[in-house]
Design a protein around this nucleic acid. Structure first.
Length: 296
RNA sequence: GUCCGGGUAGCUCAGUCGGUAGAGCAGUGGAUUGAAAAUCCACGUGUCGUCAGUUCAAUUCUGACCCUGGACA
């Protein structure tokens, strides 16, 4: 294959086999993987996050997995900083970085950057939450409408996360989020990318998801989650991720865990997640690859 | 066998003082600019267990029967 300086990015829904494909690509093209996964970045959340196996790690070097503690701050902007460092470092050694992951906001941020706004402000978020307790989400949405009508128009009153962020951006900078977004619009690229997608039939993906849920539970997922809960990680980000959330809920009930019921709940949450990922990927200029095909 | 609950959307249930019914979850589609595996939006005709009675009108009242949970025998 001729040299291709583009940044290769492997995408696809959860459980589709992204890592396996990325590992093959690394072996064939002297590459190393830069993970774009919002759960695998955390240490200790191993069984349920689908981290690459020891064998896969041996075959291809992995970056941005196990790099922060569960209670450390992490967001899309911080990810792009870390990813840029990893990419530069890999290229500096003459290797090919291959981005691989299912957190598509992070991938988009890496490829196109984000609005130049400051990071989240814990004190402001707390104030917004207090305001919601007082006047409801619709009340906070109305607050936003007073300073940034365009943002308020586009956001649902119940979408607290985004309403709070838009309000926060204005309060911190005096600039309307909607103005920044209009100017930014993900129009420019920080990297020329080659998007490689793993395609799966829906029924086939369901089978893969179910099999993976079973395998993870059999591999001691509940025990791991129990340990993490005891270690005081209950309120951390990764505990609200698919599966860990369902396990924590099951553990918090009086009755003993019904494993079949838990498995079903996790399977369902995972396929809902896969659906949302499909929406992200729709209409993207992706080269779709069918697993098993020899094209790399 | 007797008594008391239940039988309503794929699941768990709410409801109709008689005018053919609605939430959560699941499902499908969508949004996504420092929480993103998060957060949010849209989409709900189903013999209201069966048969009969009363009624202009019954899923709603009455009776019988069937199924189911519990208590007592």
């Amino acid at each position: 294959m001729t040299s291709d300086d583009r940044l290769w990015v492997v995408v696809g829904p959860t459980a589709s086999g992204k890592t396996a494909l990325a590992v093959e690509l690394c072996e064939a093209h002297d590459g190393e993987i830069v993970s774009a996964d919002s759960v695998q970045v955390y240490r200790h959340f191993d069984v349920g996050s689908g981290k690459p196996s020891a064998e896969e790690r041996a075959r291809a070097r992995q970056h941005l997995i196990d790099v922060i503690e569960p209670n450390e701050p992490m967001d899309a902007a911080r990810f792009t900083e870390l990813a840029e460092l990893a990419i530069a470092e890999i290229r500096g050694r003459g290797k090919r970085p291959i981005v691989c992951g299912g957190t598509f906001l992070w991938v988009r941020a890496l490829l196109h950057g984000l609005v130049p706004a400051p990071p989240a402000d814990a004190a402001l978020r707390a104030r917004h939450q207090a305001r919601v307790n007082e006047v409801g989400r619709a009340g906070l949405h109305a607050d936003l409408g007073r300073v940034d009508p365009e943002a308020a128009r586009r956001l649902a009153p119940n979408d607290f996360v985004r309403v709070s962020r838009a309000l926060e951006v204005f309060e911190l900078t005096g600039v309307r989020m909607s103005d920044w977004q209009a100017a930014h619009g993900f129009k420019t690229s920080r990297h020329e990318a080659r998007l490689l997608g793993v395609r799966r039939e829906k029924a086939e993906l369901d089978q893969l998801i179910l099999a993976r849920c079973r395998a993870m539970l059999a591999a001691g997922w509940v025990a791991e989650a129990t340990r993490l809960l005891q270690a005081g990680y209950a309120e951390t980000r990764p505990f609200s991720s698919v599966g860990y959330k369902q396990i924590a809920q099951a553990l918090s009930r009086e009755e003993p865990i019904d494993l079949a019921e838990l498995e079903l709940a996790i399977f369902r949450a995972t396929r809902v997640f896969a659906r949302r990922q499909r929406t992200w990927l729709r209409d993207q200029p992706i080269e779709w690859l069918t697993p098993g095909s020899t094209k790399l």
